[in-house]
Design a protein around this nucleic acid. Structure first.
Length: 427
DNA sequence: GACTTCTCGT
């Protein structure tokens, strides 16, 4: 990636400037409109165009161009370029512009630099709900959901900032991440007091997902039924919810219902893209997961094929992983192995570990050794892999079914009970 | 300006 800044003036430090919005009279220039449009289609181009601009015509660089370039860095998680853009923001005196500040926070969150996010936040003189939400979201994005919820509470109690829909959405995803059902329920209570909030689909999807991840499938179904206009994410969350709770038939029934609805809409000639809920790659992960948990190998293969042939979705590593999991759970280790070898993309460590784990459960020494050597090749071998293999040898040799049985019981998450809370507590 | 769906070993 091209570096667009070489020698920067020392940043001046001023934290007391009042925040301002973009000057209304300053309309985005044509070049800024290009920067903005590339942001959507090809953020790298935004950065390249910006660096060009900086080289050829520095005077054309204004707060808008910087805003877009910061956003581009966030989208592409480019830490170095992002920092350079930040330095330029300071140099050009755009620090008080609150839109730029929140975009910078966003960029640091995307580049996993949470302390930089927090530092920026601290420097903002009059923090509104958007700044708070950016901060909370940064913690959630970087797997610090506990801290995120603390800050969410702090925002309300110490600073009297009322959460809006988006703040609640982010807080709910923190609850989902932690499996914190009680917290999620109390947020649900707060949301219920604002009837207009139930019209916000993102918020309702986050609520649904929270109940799914916290193991309350009944509440999740209630939320699902109460969402009048659903989107693909709504359906995906519910399908995944059923799958996670061992209700494979429910999950697949839901998927069929969605397909049926799409078909009938197409027949009625209302088949335009925006009126159909076309299953996407994430939804198929839910579908394959359901098959896997129910041991429905043939169905899983059928869905996998239909994903490719009917929906034109190119399977990703995740989908291949689901298929490997599906085969491994049923003990079809050899088939899983040849499936992996036939994959058009390079299998990752997780896939080999799935096979390794299953080889342990089913006592297949050869495939365990093969998987393990692949893991070595991938340079991703963990201590746990040695343990897994030695367990296999021990189990094969002198120990008895007891051990095998115990392995089987503890190595599998049992569908049908809340796998979430168990998983979270012991991770 | 900030937001929601993504399985898999120990």
């Amino acid at each position: 990636m091209m570096r667009f800044l070489h020698n920067l003036a020392k940043p001046f430090t001023s934290t007391t400037q009042p925040q301002i919005n973009f000057p209304k009279h300053l309309k985005p220039t044509r070049i800024n409109l290009s920067l903005k449009s590339y942001l959507k289609s090809n953020p790298i181009k935004t950065i390249l165009l910006f660096s060009d601009l900086l080289r050829k015509k520095i005077s054309a660089v204004d707060s808008y161009s910087l805003l877009y370039v910061v956003k581009a860095c966030a989208k592409k998680s480019l830490a170095t370029e992002g920092k350079q853009a930040h330095a330029l923001v300071i140099k050009l005196g755009y620090k008080p512009i609150i839109f730029i500040q929140t975009s910078l926070m966003d960029m640091y969150a995307a580049t996993t630099n949470v302390s930089a996010v927090h530092k920026l936040f601290d420097e903002i003189p009059n923090k509104n709900v958007v700044c708070w939400t950016s901060l909370i979201s940064a913690y959630v994005q970087n797997q610090k959901s506990y801290r995120a919820l603390e800050i969410f509470r702090q925002m309300q109690s110490d600073n009297n900032v009322e959460p809006d829909q988006i703040a609640f959405t982010v807080a709910l995803s923190a609850c989902a991440d932690l499996g914190a059902l009680d917290k999620g329920v109390s947020i649900h209570d707060l949301i219920s007091r604002k009837p207009e909030f139930s019209e916000d689909l993102s918020l309702m999807n986050a609520l649904l997902n929270m109940y799914v991840k916290c193991g309350d499938i009944r509440k999740a179904m209630l939320v699902f039924d109460n969402i009048r206009i659903k989107d693909v994410r709504t359906w995906t969350s519910m399908i995944v919810g059923h799958a996670l709770h061992g209700q494979a038939e429910e999950a697949l029934r839901l998927f069929s219902a969605l397909e049926e609805e799409n078909n009938s809409r197409s027949r009625k000639g209302r088949g335009t893209e925006d009126q159909l809920l076309i299953p996407n790659e994430v939804m198929f992960i839910g579908v394959l997961m359901a098959c896997s948990h129910a041991g429905m190998v043939e169905e899983g293969k059928r869905y996998f094929r239909s994903m490719i042939e009917v929906y034109g979705i190119k399977p990703t590593l995740s989908h291949f992983g689901c298929m490997v999991d599906l085969l491994c759970r049923r003990g079809l280790l050899k088939e899983a192995y040849s499936f992996i070898l036939a994959m058009p993309i390079q299998p990752n460590a997780v896939i080999w570990r799935t096979l390794l784990g299953a080889s342990g459960v089913h006592g297949n020494k050869e495939l365990a050794a093969a998987a393990r050597s692949k893991l070595y090749e991938l340079n991703a071998s963990l201590v746990g892999d040695d343990v897994a293999l030695s367990n296999i040898y021990a189990a094969k040799g002198m120990w008895e079914e007891k051990i095998m049985l115990r392995n089987e019981m503890t190595q599998r998450r049992t569908p049908g009970c809340s796998s979430v809370e168990v998983g979270k507590l012991h991770s």
